[in-house]
């Protein structure tokens, strides 16, 4: 493995860790959605890297485009839920989402 390959993988790993750290440390729903998108961007990078290593650019291009479409749908649904929470409660604080308990 060349240094470039290792650098790409380390970058992706750092991006995933950044996203997860942000996810744990924030209470704002919009920020949580952004954190998830950061993780997904790291995944996109790894997929593109997989295409570069194996030389199958066309297949990976199709994968990435499909994935981007799906992630947009997920982000829109998440934003829709956040907007409805804001309408009901007046804020987007997830630490107040504690109604469901055993």
């Amino acid at each position: 493995m060349s240094i470039l390959n290792i650098a790409i993988l380390i970058t992706a790993a750092l991006l995933i860790l950044t996203g997860l750290y942000m996810l744990i440390n924030t209470h704002n729903m919009i920020k949580i959605i952004i954190a998830i998108e950061i993780v997904v961007k790291a995944v996109t990078l790894i997929l593109a890297f997989a295409g570069y290593v194996t030389g199958q650019y066309a297949v990976v291009e199709a994968f990435i485009i499909t994935m981007i479409v799906i992630e947009v749908v997920v982000a829109v649904v998440a934003a829709g839920i956040a907007v409805n929470v804001y309408k009901n409660k007046g804020n987007m604080d997830v630490s107040e989402l504690k109604k469901l308990k055993g």
Partner: peptide, 28 residues
Amino acid sequence: GLEGGFKYLIMSAIASAFILVSLALIFI
């Protein structure tokens, strides 16, 4: 409902990201 849906969405989105990482590594 919004609370349950949001929790499921976040956990499931992370799970999908993990699954995709492993798919990419298997693809390599």
